[in-house]
Design a protein around this nucleic acid. Sequence first.
DNA 1: CTTGCTAAGTCTGTCAAGTAGACCTAGCTT
DNA 2: AAGCTAGGTCTACTTGACAGACTTAGCAAG
Lengths: 158, 158
Amino acid sequence: MTPSWALDYDTRDCSIAAALAIVGEKWTFLVLREAFNGIRRFGDMQRRTGAPRQILSERLGRLVEEGILRKVPYQEEGQRVRSEYRLTQRGIDLFPVIVALLEWGDKHAAGPAGPILSLTHRDCGAPVELRLRCTSGHDVPSARDVTPVPGPGARRIA
Amino acid sequence: MTPSWALDYDTRDCSIAAALAIVGEKWTFLVLREAFNGIRRFGDMQRRTGAPRQILSERLGRLVEEGILRKVPYQEEGQRVRSEYRLTQRGIDLFPVIVALLEWGDKHAAGPAGPILSLTHRDCGAPVELRLRCTSGHDVPSARDVTPVPGPGARRIA
DNA sequence: CTTGCTAAGTCTGTCAAGTAGACCTAGCTT
DNA sequence: AAGCTAGGTCTACTTGACAGACTTAGCAAG
């Protein structure tokens, strides 16, 4: 939690900043939330996120470019062919980010009536939650039990 | 993953949106990253995040208002008393969000040389990672194994 | 075959937010 | 009293968000 070495290392090429450059915008998170809720169509996304159409269009385009969503054609009875947006594996891998925000929001910013959304295990129905573990198998209850160390790509500041 | 009921429910009071309203801005995430790296001082934050001073000032103020950081006075030899910013418990609870972004970035947006930061268990030194589990004790390997259901605060659309 | 309907997406003008760089401030030292 | 420093604010400019109107492509009814 308090590594004095941090100041000696470069912060460019940070994975967090790189991730945020792709998905770090306000509406993007809400689009992903809806994608994980199974929403796939432009209009539904617009209604449920409240995003302005232009922004939504741009963000969906960006997510497709980045390989987080892909466009899939569909055709409604008596309608022309349109496109819907589905999560790719790369997109599905963002699930923990959404869950982490959801858990923090539930705990610290919940509405008066409690969470409006709850995540359950498909196989047993029990609530799902994020846990920190180390690869030796220990539970890591808090950020206080974590020590950040420089990784392979770390570079000292010149 | 594809609940048809989703469209029937209201999306206001969503915990994710509420969380994002507090910490959802671009520089805020980077400030938190640095906070978890043990950075506490305005100038260090500025150098390491690259945030414009005005934005940084505003974001730090907001995080203090929201009880995510608190100002603590300190005094350097021969300097006047200044304030540093430390995480509160509410702030520490945001750790999974940062870890989730880090893990996704490491996997999908890493720089050429690999991650610059690695998180280890303080007690045993092994790498730390996020896992999804259900409260019955099952591992939940993917978002595909999760079923979202309406929570206690859910409201049908009128 | 033209008029209308729908979902998806774009255009336009306006307004808020982000940004760089200079400037200010308070306490300490010389 | 003049200068240093970390922290913070002011100014002018540029970028991005936004609401509301408009466009497009295919289908269907008249």
